[in-house]
Design a binder for these strands. Structure first.
Lengths: 237, 237
DNA sequence: ATTACCATCCCCATAAATAGCGAGGGTATA
DNA sequence: TATACCCTCGCTATTTATGGGGATGGTAAT
C-alpha cells in the first residue's frame, strides 16, 4: 500500500499535461477506494483549472448554479489552514443543504474531505476526496491518510502551477530601497504627508519616488502601483 | 529515526504555548543535526511571531538592518509554492551577499532550506533549516527530508495560528460582490470614472462601494483598502 | 415582520493626488 | 570618464478623491 502511493506520487511528478493529472486523480480514487477525487483551482473568476472524477454534468451544474458562492466547503476551506471534513462544516443555510442534496443526486457520496492549498499571488486550490461512508469510518479514513493526501495535494498543485506558468509572466521590476519604502508606507495606509514624515524627507521627494516606482511598475496610478508591488511580492504588508 | 520524528510531531501537536514551540525547534535542530531551525511569520510589521534557534543578536540585527527587504529567501519564498534551497536563489545583488556574510558571522551555516507556508487571510510564514555543509550533502539532506519537514512546517503553522487566534480577531471582513468588483477595478489601475464605466454604474455609486469596502477593511484610504484586500487574498489581480 | 444589508442614485465643500516645469550632488558600473 | 541611476529639494495649476449630508427599492434571514 505504501509503495503504491509512492508510485502514484512518482507518476504525478512525471506528469506533463492536464490529462496526466486526470489519470492520477482516477488512480487515486481507485487506490483509496473512494467515490471521487478532485483537484481544482478556486480563483476569483470561477473555474480555470481542474482535474478529477466528478461527472461533467455535476461540474456544469455546479458552475451554472454558482455553487462556488454557496458551497460551505469553499467558504470553510478559504478561512482555514487545516484540511476539512465536510461534516464539520456549517450546513445550516438552506442553500447549502439544497446543494448537498443536489450533489448526491449527481453521484457524490455523503462524506467528504478537502485540503486547502495556497500558492503565491493568492492562488488557491482544493483537493477533495469524496465517498459514501458512516461518520466514524470516514473519520478513521481521514486520520489514517491525511498526511499522505497532503503530500499528494502539494504535488498536484505544484504541477498545476507549472502547467499554467503561474508567476512566469509576472517578472517584477526592481525598485530602489527608497521606492520600496515609499510603496510600503502607502500600502500601510499612510498618505503622502505621513509617508514623507515617516521617511524623513520632503513630501516632494516622496512624490518623486512614487512617480518613479509607478513608471517602473507600469502602473496607472498610486493605487495600481501599490497593488502591483504587493501582488508581485516585492513588498509585503 | 522515524519514530523520533513521530515523537516530535506528537510533542508539537500537544504544544500549548510559544515556549513549547521554541522547545520543538530546538529538538528539531538536534534531531536533524543542523545549525538552526526557525519558524516565523513574515507579516506587516516585521516580527510578530516566531520560534527558533537563531541568536537574539542575529534576530535583532536582521530587523534593525531591515534585511526582510534584502533577503532573497523572503522574496524567493514569497513568489514560490515549493520549498527552496538557498543556493538556488538569486544572490547576485551586493546587499544580499553582504547579508549572507553578516549572517555567517552570527553563527549561521552556509546552507539553508526554507519552506513557505500560507494560511488564510494572507498569512505567510517560513520554516527554515540552516546548516554548514557542501552543496551535494545539503541537497541530499533536503531530498531525504523534505516531506517530513513539510509536515512539521504544517503542524508548526497550525499551532502558531491557534496561539494567535488567527481568524478570530483577524478575520477578513466579507465584502459584497459589488464591493469586491470595485476593489478589483481599482487594483487593476482604473480610476473611479473608468471603474464606474466598467461596472455600468454611476461614479457616485462606485464611490459608495469604495467607502463601504474601506470601512469594512478598516482602511485609511483607497490605496490602503486595495492593499488590504489584496494581501488578505479576498481579491486577486 | 422586522432587522440588516445590498444596490443604486444625487449635491456640495474640502482635502489630496497628479502633471508639468525645474535643479544639484552622490555612487556605481561599463 | 561617461552613463546611468539614486537621493534630495521647490513651485504652480489641474484633476481626482474624500467626507458629510441625504433617498429608494430589493433581498435575505431571524
Amino acid at each position: 500500500m505504501k509503495s503504491r502511493l509512492e508510485d502514484l506520487v512518482s507518476t504525478l511528478q512525471a506528469a506533463s499535461s492536464l490529462e496526466d493529472l486526470q489519470v492520477v486523480t482516477e488512480a487515486l480514487r481507485d487506490h483509496y477506494e473512494v467515490a471521487h477525487t478532485v483537484y481544482h483551482w478556486v480563483n476569483s473568476v470561477g473555474e480555470r483549472f481542474g482535474a478529477g472524477t466528478y461527472s461533467a454534468e455535476w461540474v456544469d451544474r455546479y458552475l451554472e448554479k454558482d455553487y462556488l458562492r454557496t458551497d460551505p466547503v469553499i467558504f470553510g476551506c478559504f478561512q482555514r489552514f487545516t484540511p476539512v471534513i465536510w461534516k464539520e462544516l456549517d450546513w445550516s443555510s438552506k442553500a447549502a443543504r439544497a446543494m448537498l442534496q443536489d450533489a448526491q443526486q449527481h453521484g457524490l457520496g455523503n462524506q467528504g474531505f478537502t485540503i486547502p492549498i495556497r500558492g503565491p499571488n493568492g492562488q488557491f486550490a482544493l483537493f477533495t476526496m469524496n465517498a459514501t461512508a458512516d461518520d466514524d469510518a470516514w473519520e478513521t479514513f481521514v486520520d489514517e491518510n491525511t498526511r499522505d493526501l497532503m503530500i499528494v495535494a502539494h504535488e498536484l498543485n505544484k504541477k498545476a502551477l507549472e502547467f499554467e506558468n503561474w508567476g512566469q509572466d509576472l517578472q517584477s521590476p526592481s525598485l530602489s530601497p527608497r521606492e520600496l519604502s515609499a510603496m510600503t508606507c502607502l500600502a500601510k495606509g499612510m498618505n503622502r504627508a505621513q509617508s514623507a514624515a515617516e521617511l524623513n524627507i520632503s513630501e516632494h521627494t516622496l512624490r518623486v519616488y512614487i512617480e518613479s516606482a509607478r513608471h517602473k511598475l507600469g502602473a496607472m496610478n498610486t493605487t495600481h502601483a501599490v497593488a502591483r508591488a504587493l501582488s508581485t511580492g516585492i513588498i509585503i504588508v
